[in-house]
Design a protein around this nucleic acid. Structure first.
Lengths: 153, 153
DNA sequence: TTGTTGGTTCATAATTTTATGAACCAAATA
DNA sequence: TATTTGGTTCATAAAATTATGAACCAACAA
């Protein structure tokens, strides 16, 4: 498999995106490769050669991505090689998870509120306001997704 | 300033939360301290002593947090010390930014779509579907925030 | 004018994260 | 049976991140 300069570049950008989300560089690049590859799949060897990394790095990264349900592989008749692909069915779920993660902080905020004294009531009410906003958003999110589902029907 | 065991514990949890969002450990802990502190503020010395870190670490972390608009300081008459606080007015904005960041990936997806060949149309249409979902969510988000604002009036 | 307080700066030490290479293994092939 | 293919495993090297300490500075106090 050979990549164009455009493809190489966008793989790096995808890599950076996933890296800033807290993943190690190679994971994002593999996801990137699987996204830009013409047939949306790549063998172990493809990954190693396209990304210029060691066998062990590829092996470990793939193990991780599979454990995270981000990647799976298929096989082809008469071949021993694995063809790795993105487990794309999970994406919308991933997006929702990312959104929920933002509101996850509300759990901590609620704990803080219950712990705080009354030395700074202004801050306390700010906290409550933020908490309220998060609660609202968290509750509305599923409704929004329902709305989307109806819209595409 | 002395912290209870409860306060110490929650500071660590806040620290971990911010750390997994890609920040260095000390930043999250400082934010945590400013959240649980009774008067919602702390001096340079307070921070150093409560978090058991060096002067330089505190100085560098505070510079960063201030540059990120997360922290500010006030002074008190007759005192040279700075009292650091969370710039709490920015929080709802921060939350919105975090949400937008999730959809930011759509820019990359759109680029990928325009770059992809037609070797795997199934994958192509999956990509379009995900992109569509993100576009929808991104467009609805401001409406949701409007709805919230009206609701609290 | 000397010392103290409240910091800042920067080179580098300590730690953590990430990638490597060598050894290994099972299945298929020669 | 020996060799090749397609990987895995693990100790550690390399790189990146984070924290430290020493030197410094300005403002104020003695």
């Amino acid at each position: 498999m050979t990549l164009t300069a455009d493809q190489q570049q966008i793989i790096e950008r995808i890599g950076v995106f996933f890296e800033t989300k807290g993943n190690q560089p190679i994971l994002g690049r593999i996801i990137g490769l699987l996204m830009v590859a013409d047939d949306a799949e790549a063998t172990f060897e493809d990954i190693q050669k396209c990304l210029f990394v060691s066998k062990s790095a590829v092996s470990q990264a793939l193990t991780l991505l599979q454990s995270q349900n981000k990647v799976e592989y298929i096989t082809k008749p008469g071949e021993r090689k694995r063809y790795f692909r993105l487990k794309i069915r999970n994406w919308k779920v991933d997006i929702q998870d990312d959104l929920r993660k933002v509101f996850k902080f509300n759990e901590i905020i609620e704990e803080i509120i219950s712990l705080r004294g009354n030395k700074n009531e202004e801050f306390n009410s700010y906290l409550k306001e933020v908490s309220n906003f998060m609660q609202f958003m968290e509750a509305e999110l599923p409704k929004l997704i329902e709305k989307y589902k109806k819209q595409i029907e």
